[in-house]
Amino acid sequence: MSSNYITDSHGIRRYLVTINVNGIDYTRVIKANVLLANFLREELDLTGTKKGCEIGDCGSCTVLLNDKPVNSCLVLALECDGMSVTTVEGLATTSSLDIIQEKFLEFGAIQCGYCSAGMIMSAKALLMKNPKPTEEEVRKGISGNLCRCTGYINIIKAILSASGQEVPN
């Protein structure tokens, strides 16, 4: 955690942090209570990471922190000093989508799209750890991500297919 801070005229400390987001180091001066979700959305304008509840229930703000999935609304940006974060914006390259994104499109796994970023990041974390998950493992892997539109069925299929397994569409 950063020990570099300045104290403003109201006596509030502002810390110097450097967080690597999607491969780029960003250095910012922030208050201690800034959530990682807000750091990404407000400081970096990376609004692909969504906020649905801000208390860790819905999973919409899931990002990878040092390759592990976290609810970015439950993590202070200050804690991430020197760490690396991957958001949904970091998955696709300019020429191609991540296989999970492709499969989400192919299998109709996206409706309103508000849970999609978090869902895709949880799927990414799952497949990084377990490249050939069973259906039950996929269900568990995204059980922290709430979706109100799809009934999860096409999301589960998309993730299984992204892992290279045969799935009837």
Partner: peptide
């Protein structure tokens, strides 16, 4: 036909803006 969603890529990549994303 099961044509792909017209807003699918914007939603899958996080590029799509919802009201709360706007400034």
């Amino acid at each position: 036909k099961s044509k792909p969603r017209i807003d699918g890529v914007a939603k899958a990549t996080g590029a799509g803006k919802y009201c709360g994303d706007m400034k």
